[in-house]
């Protein structure tokens, strides 16, 4: 066995997860808000945490952070068992939970100073510099001396993000980070998440904006009615095998024969195109087979299922998907 293989094998599997829950359950009276959730967020991932309103996302996040006690199940955050390890691990976790919250009559700057003063893991002599760079990173430097009550919703959201960035973090848990932001702000947050992820920070981001998540997430988890319906790498969850190939050709009849010989299922066809479930074949293989049989191929398009379609399929219609 090589040294590399030994090293890989010696690493316990759990250290590869930034967040791991097992059978996490929380009730409110009769209502089961979080029901046996097994969350697995790999280190370095950008994990899109999706679900309709009231599906248990925020309760799950509160349980992760030790703000609430689960009725069953366990939470491991950065390898530490919560809530016992809160003092050790939470300083490495930046959070934005259910919207920003600050003292209205303090300035943005003073609000961050207050949070930093409470943090035993930060060096007070670097406080001003860290606050300054956090404010700059979220584009709030100009409003640092304004009282929080005079902030717009988007500025409040930015200050919340700045608080999460007051010190280097290994994990960011961001609940609806783009809520209230204008399109530029939304874009900036997306860029910010990409930058942080590129630095090795694990990001769990909950959102309703599926298009947003699709652009930044490497992994997704979909909650509905307190249950985690599906999770994993974005591609796997979407199901690459389920992708459809749109073949544009005038020889539809001949193409149908060729595809039947390949054992592929044709979902739909018209006079000038057909939709094929690719299965484990790739577009080039299918194209080569068609061309060999003298089928004139005008165009090929891979039509991947949208996250939104999957989301609606899993969680049902009847709620506002893209708010």
């Amino acid at each position: 066995m090589t040294a590399v293989a030994t090293a890989l094998k010696a690493t316990p599997t759990d250290t590869s997860l930034a967040i791991a829950t097992h059978g996490l359950t929380r009730r409110f009276g009769q209502h089961v808000a979080v029901n046996g959730v097994d969350l697995a967020v790999p280190r370095g991932a950008v994990y899109g945490f999706l679900g309709p309103n009231g599906s248990g996302k925020t309760t799950t996040i509160r349980l992760l952070l030790g703000l609430m006690t689960p009725h069953a199940g366990t939470v491991e955050l950065l390898g530490g068992a919560m809530p016992a390890a809160a003092g050790d691990v939470l300083s490495r976790v930046g959070t934005l939970v259910e919207g920003p919250a600050f003292h209205p009559y303090l300035t943005g700057n003073d609000n961050l100073r207050r949070l930093d003063a409470y943090d035993a893991s930060t060096d007070p002599s670097t406080s001003a510099a860290r606050i300054g760079s956090a404010l700059e990173r979220v584009g709030l430097s100009a409003a640092a001396k304004k009282t929080y009550r005079r902030y717009s919703l988007g500025m409040k959201q930015r200050l919340g993000l700045a608080a999460a960035l007051l010190r280097p973090r290994d994990l960011l848990i961001l609940d609806e980070p783009t809520n209230g932001l204008d399109p530029q702000g939304t874009r900036e947050v997306r860029t910010l998440i990409r930058e942080l992820a590129a630095d090795g920070t694990t990001v769990l981001v909950s959102s309703h904006l599926l298009a947003e998540i699709e652009q930044v997430a490497s992994h997704v988890g979909i909650m509905s009615a307190g249950k985690l319906l599906s999770q994993g790498q974005l591609d796997q969850v979407l199901g690459v095998a389920a992708a459809l190939l749109r073949v544009e050709t005038p020889d539809v009849e001949r193409a149908l024969d060729v595809l039947a010989q390949l054992g592929l299922r044709v979902e739909n066809h018209t006079a000038d195109h057909l939709l094929v479930a690719m299965g484990d074949r790739t577009p080039d293989v299918i194209n080569a087979a068609l061309v060999r049989a003298d089928v004139a191929v005008r165009g090929l398009h891979v039509e991947r299922p949208l996250l939104e379609d999957l989301f609606v399929k899993l969680t049902g219609e009847g709620f506002d998907v893209v708010r």
């Binding site: 952070l65 703000l67 939470l90 919250a101």
Partner: peptide
């Protein structure tokens, strides 16, 4: 909630 997740 933000004070407690600082953590304090």
């Amino acid at each position: 909630r933000y004070l407690l997740t600082v953590p304090v």
